[in-house]
């Protein structure tokens, strides 16, 4: 495990698919949300980005995706490169074309479109290639339940099905890097399991690099190779997922366990958090 300062240089440059370098993000020209954030995802890895509410995890994904201008935010400093190409100034359409897909927090399916039409909309940038039919078969292979409901309006799907549709849309774009923002949000534990199993399968079968943002640190560290922990707009800790899961600080703060290995009540954790922070 490395400390922040010395992070990120160990991997050879060609092996790094996504490189976020010292990025600073400002909203409304005054609110500093990311303060010099750096993280990397190696080709073919599954990276977890963890942190408390408001740490800046979603903002990180949005800045990679080029969505900040639509929310009055901007990258005021730093660079993002993907697959050897600088993408800091790209708009979302260019970013999708270069091979990054995002599954947004809260699923964000097109409620008034059918399942099939949602997938068609997702194939927008690749329509001319004429591969939409094959891509759709692949999506239905991973999510058979979507095929059963392909002519249903997406707004009436269950939460789990909507999450599957959101992931299916991203899959339609055949991404090199798939970013998932809180895929477990608001889902029953069994469904969360199912969704995570599919994430693992996508990662393994298709070799897709995955950047996973999660509140559920337990689950995320279980499937990830590498983890980053965010607080107040910067990375405070990083390392191989297994080591992070065993780190006593991480156990205290994110896995809700005391030093003896028992789960503490949430109130104790909160109390403790108020006293001790990394920064």
């Amino acid at each position: 495990m490395t400390d922040v300062a010395g992070a990120a240089t160990s991997a050879p440059a060609t092996d790094v698919l996504l490189d976020v370098n010292n990025v600073e993000v400002i909203y409304d020209e005054v609110i500093l949300v990311l303060r010099g954030l750096s993280l990397q995802a190696r080709r073919g890895s599954l990276v977890a980005l963890l942190g408390a509410n408001g740490a800046g995890k979603s903002t990180t994904l949005k800045s990679i995706m080029g969505l900040l201008p639509s929310e009055d935010g901007e990258i005021s400093e730093g660079h993002i490169s993907f697959d050897g190409q600088e993408i800091t100034e790209f708009d979302p359409a260019q970013i999708v074309k270069s091979g990054i897909s995002l599954v947004m927090e809260g699923r964000r399916v097109f409620e008034h479109l059918t399942v099939h039409e949602n997938l068609v909309a997702a194939a927008y940038t690749r329509w001319r290639e004429g591969t939409a039919g094959d891509d759709m078969r692949l999506v239905y292979e991973y999510f058979p339940r979507l095929e059963e409901r392909s002519n249903q309006v997406a707004g009436y799907l269950s939460g789990g099905e909507q999450q599957m549709l959101a992931m299916g849309r991203a899959l339609m774009q055949q991404p090199k890097l798939l970013m998932l923002d809180e895929p477990s949000l608001g889902l029953a534990p069994l469904l969360v399991r199912e969704i995570f199993d599919i994430i693992v399968r996508l990662h393994r079968d298709l070799g897709t690099t995955i950047l996973l943002v999660e509140q559920n640190a337990h689950l995320a560290l279980e499937i990830a190779d590498h983890g980053y922990i965010m607080e107040n707009g910067r990375i405070v800790l990083e390392g191989p997922a297994r080591e992070l899961a065993e780190n006593p600080d991480v156990q205290e703060f994110y896995l809700g366990m005391s030093e003896s290995g028992e789960r503490k009540s949430y109130r104790d954790v909160k109390h403790y958090k108020r006293r001790k922070r990394w920064l």
Partner: peptide, 23 residues
Amino acid sequence: SHYGVAMRAVADDQQAAMVMGIS
């Protein structure tokens, strides 16, 4: 038409449509 579907997608959720790569 996929353009027509894209138009309806934008009407539904603009930001999500951007994430789909729709201009």
